Amino acid sequence: MPRKLTAEQEAMKVEKFELGDFNLECGAQTQDWFLLYRCIGDPKSPAILKPTCFGGTIRGSDVPVGVEHAITPEKYYIIFVGMFGGGESSSPSNTNVPFNGGNFPPISLADQVNAQKKLCEFLGIKKLFAVAGFSMGACQAFQWGVQYPDYMDFIIAVCGSARCSPHNYVFLEGPKNALLADAKFKGGHYSADALPQLGTKGFARAYSGWGFSATWHRELKFLDLGYKDIDDYLAQVWDGGLGTTAGTDYTSSDANDLLCLTRTWQTANVANIAPYDGDFEAAMKAIKARALVMPCTTDQYFEVEAGEIEVSLMNPGIGTFKPIVSIWGHQAGAGSNPTDTKFFNNAAAELFAEAEKKA
């Protein structure tokens, strides 16, 4: 998934982990798939895994990470890992026959987590301190908690959910079908010299109204970001590929990559693995890691009520429901503004202090 990288991002050291023989939940068998990842901090420090969000990159971060934040490389070994389908790790846009382009198989959250577990083992990590993620990264954090309940002490799920709600599914149908309507898409078998660019632009525009809340728009917060009016904001951020505060770049993204991620998102449900086989309540009760669940009160993707329900289904003492009260909608969890970032840092620091008291 092409991105406009800064000189600083270009200079970052990025690693490639070859997965070797790797079986997907759908039954497909792969031999040459890989994960791209980046690490900061001391490998001897407690390890925090930070999966990417939809359209995110390992060269940036959505969840606040850095020396000025609670998740700091001064105390933790932080591993940024790219999702399958995100254009960095194995994706339709960079995979060889027989899984190239439109032939790319469906990817589940369980596939993402199984691959990441292999990476952690390769890095010699016997147990993670935490899995922290925003949006689809939060979905992966929930999946980690269910799939490998003894492998981490904490999960932090920011503006994400343990399953895709019916409303969330319907929202995604809009951008998806805007892309599919481009005649150049050809069922995913388009050529490099005839890309479905109207489709990817349509995807971005269909997506544009959902990232921030109605109140954010009514209060003209896009003016505070330096845009002269709403049309300038739409043209530069969504048409121009600047994306959101999470670093997403839809208009220059590969169409098949976008559809791969959308399909993973729409089918997300932590209970879609054995032994739960769809029993969501049983899957949530399987979580043993302390869970910090932080939806935003105005998020249009992952409703705040879903996070409250998810925590209520966990065993007593496991989950903490701490909503971000903000008009910044979904982007409240992605370092979009100082107030919400401070709220995240305080909540994460409070959570991690529990481990320090026990040490």
Results as ranks from 00 to 15, higher is better:
100 N>C: 15
244 T>Y: 04
25 E>I: 12
318 I>C: 15
299 D>E: 08
319 G>S: 12
79 I>H: 03
357 K>T: 07
91 S>G: 10
321 F>Y: 13
196 P>R: 10
285 K>L: 10
278 G>S: 05
67 V>N: 03
129 F>Y: 09
308 E>D: 02
138 A>E: 00
174 G>K: 01
357 K>H: 11
157 A>K: 00
133 G>D: 12
11 A>N: 06
56 G>N: 09
193 D>N: 14
111 D>L: 03
306 A>N: 08
35 L>C: 07
51 P>I: 02
232 D>A: 15
121 E>Y: 04
157 A>F: 10
138 A>C: 05
103 N>H: 12
225 L>S: 09
340 D>R: 01
74 E>Q: 08
72 T>G: 00
141 A>D: 06
72 T>R: 01
125 I>V: 13
216 W>T: 04
218 R>Y: 03
7 A>F: 08
176 K>A: 15
248 T>W: 02
81 V>A: 10
256 N>L: 01
194 A>C: 11
2 P>N: 13
142 F>S: 12
129 F>I: 04
143 Q>E: 15
168 N>A: 13
205 R>K: 07
276 Y>C: 11
223 L>E: 10
131 V>P: 01
6 T>P: 10
97 V>L: 07
262 T>S: 12
178 A>P: 00
244 T>S: 12
196 P>M: 11
211 G>T: 15
152 M>P: 02
107 I>W: 08
70 A>Q: 08
34 F>T: 14
12 M>V: 00
347 A>K: 03
201 K>F: 06
87 G>F: 00
70 A>S: 15
162 A>H: 08
21 D>R: 12
256 N>E: 04
126 K>G: 14
5 L>Q: 07
262 T>G: 09
282 A>S: 15
20 G>D: 14
16 K>P: 04
189 H>W: 05
142 F>E: 13
337 N>P: 01
288 K>C: 07
151 Y>Q: 14
88 E>F: 09
270 V>Y: 01
333 G>V: 08
64 P>D: 07
74 E>S: 09
267 T>S: 15
128 L>T: 00
114 N>D: 15
56 G>D: 13
242 L>K: 13
110 A>E: 03
11 A>V: 05
123 L>M: 06
255 A>S: 08
12 M>I: 03
204 A>N: 01
250 Y>L: 07
293 V>P: 11
145 G>L: 08
